[in-house]
Amino acid sequence: MKLKLRIWRQSDAAAKGKMVAYELDDVSEDASFLEMLDVLNERLIGEGDDPVAFDHDCREGICGSCSLVIDGQPHGPQGATTTCQLHMRKFKDGDSIDIEPWRAGAFPVIKDLVVDRSAFDRIIQAGGYISAPTGTAPDAHAAPIPKQDADAAFSAAACIGCGACVAACPNGSGMLFMAAKVAHLGLVPQGQPERATRVLGMVAAHDQAGFGGCTNAGECAAACPKEIGLDVIGRLNRDFRKAATRAA
């Protein structure tokens, strides 16, 4: 099929980029969205142009590298699907497609469609873990966990740290990402001792990193490829209120 693309080109962090138009012929509808970009890049290199830079690695929807805003939707039109898992059969011959990077103050553009998401790592450093030094662990069966809790913890832990929630949030908030981790660790017994310090630390790091505040706009959950729900934000709010009042 034929496509008209408009892609954000920005040579480096300092440069001020712009949308650039490209036409692409005979794209296979079995190709993935990123394979479509591979084809474009092969052509650009052939013509001596700089290929479009974009993050990607596993191309299986699990590493969280790929990060394209397609026609205004982070990860594109298909629900619960990462960019790398999006396939061209979702588009029609002759479509024009706009491709932009995640837009967030906390995610500055490095080049073209590649952004710096290290702010997420800093949020985790601020408490997104359970302190369990190697070798100190009791037997795995020491603390049984009700299946519902284990499953709920897993669903929250399924977050791939892609940042689509931030890209979708009108407030540029990292709330869903942060809340998913708070919920995961708060749902397992091993996570209880650090529950209060964790939520306080992570929220502080989140605000510090320049993410916006959450006003429950709910766009994040709709964009999340792993279907993390707004309930984790509720949990975070609850934990935060408890922790904050105890601290005060």
Binding site: P170, N171, G210, N216, L230
Partner: peptide, 24 residues
């Protein structure tokens, strides 16, 4: 804060898909 957190707007306006349409 929201303006600081999203300094550059999207060229293609984001369609609301959330539970509270266009709440913002």
């Amino acid at each position: 804060r929201a303006h600081r957190a999203r300094p550059v707007k999207y060229a293609h306006r984001h369609k609301s898909r959330g539970e509270s349409p266009n709440a913002f």
